[in-house]
Design a protein around this nucleic acid. Structure first.
Ligand SMILES: [Mn+2]
Ligand SMILES: [Mn+2]
Ligand SMILES: [Zn+2]
Ligand SMILES: [Zn+2]
Lengths: 140, 140
DNA sequence: TCCTAGCTTAGACTATGTCTAAACAAAGAA
DNA sequence: TTCTTTGTTTAGACATAGTCTAAGCTAGGA
């Protein structure tokens, strides 16, 4: 679980100033930012940074396997720098708060052979949904 | 597991001709259509049907809990009439083919209490990914 | 019949993301 | 150093998915 820039460098992928700022912005906070949120924050450090570079860079980091792209609602994609650390997500249906979680079992093991339809099943992700403490309090 | 129109009627929700055509189109084939795919097919039966009505109607059926909205890739949402039948999805990363699948256990039970961050966790869905038989053959 | 509430419509609008063409920057060759 | 090549960045046009608005339509009740 080394830092994202270090992991990216291993792919002989040029770490330009723009890419560094984007990677550091993504990894800096432990939430799951959208591309626009990353742009908004990265521009504070590099005002001339363009929207296209943010989108291009995020897509390249996803293609390299060092960042995960999450499409948990129908809105913007979210980017997760935690790609070297298997986990799932828990989302509040009230406010959208998202937490990383770790299940006790690998869901791939829980899919019987006769439910696989001849597929080779390589991975599985679980999306848990519920209400966070604040939204539970607000609802009662 | 009664049909979708029957389930919708129980909510004293008016079944207009447009809504009936949309519900029947959605349920007719056993795939997971996008809104545009439903419009395309429904328009063959009702040429004056509008895009807005398809979107409005799908959103209402989701709000009634009788249709599931799936956002499995970052593209269009897909609509699943199978809301009264708990299941998960298996997706081919080659061609996008999607199958309904049934796991052997409820993933909510695999999430330890200390991983719940105080949330009340009500449901979980699993997205399995892999390659379908055709895409495996094409890749080898 | 008329009235009302809800439903449908076309098209404008918004949000998210991709593409293009030109400018720019870095690295290697000479 | 200068030249060349290759990859990167940029602004803005474009594409797609979906929502909103205002007007018209329809069904059912008074
Ligand atoms: Mn995460
Ligand atoms: Mn399904
Ligand atoms: Zn919440
Ligand atoms: Zn396939």
């Amino acid at each position: 679980m080394s830092d994202l820039v270090t992991r990216l460098r291993r792919h002989n992928w040029r770490i330009t100033p723009q890419r560094r700022v984007i990677a550091e912005t993504l990894e800096g906070s432990h939430v799951h930012f959208t591309a626009e949120e990353i742009l908004e924050r990265a521009v504070e450090r590099m005002p001339e940074l363009s929207r296209a570079t943010v989108y291009n860079t995020l897509n390249e980091m996803v293609a390299l396997g060092e960042v995960l792209e999450l499409t948990l609602d129908g809105r913007s994609k979210r980017y997760d720098p935690n790609a070297d650390h298997e986990h799932h997500h828990l989302i509040c249906e009230g406010c959208g708060l998202m937490k990383d979680v770790h299940a006790m079992a690998d869901p791939v093991d829980w899919l019987p052979g006769d439910e696989r339809h001849g597929f080779s099943v390589t991975r599985a992700s679980i999306t848990y949904r519920g209400l966070c403490p604040e939204c539970q309090a607000a609802a009662s």
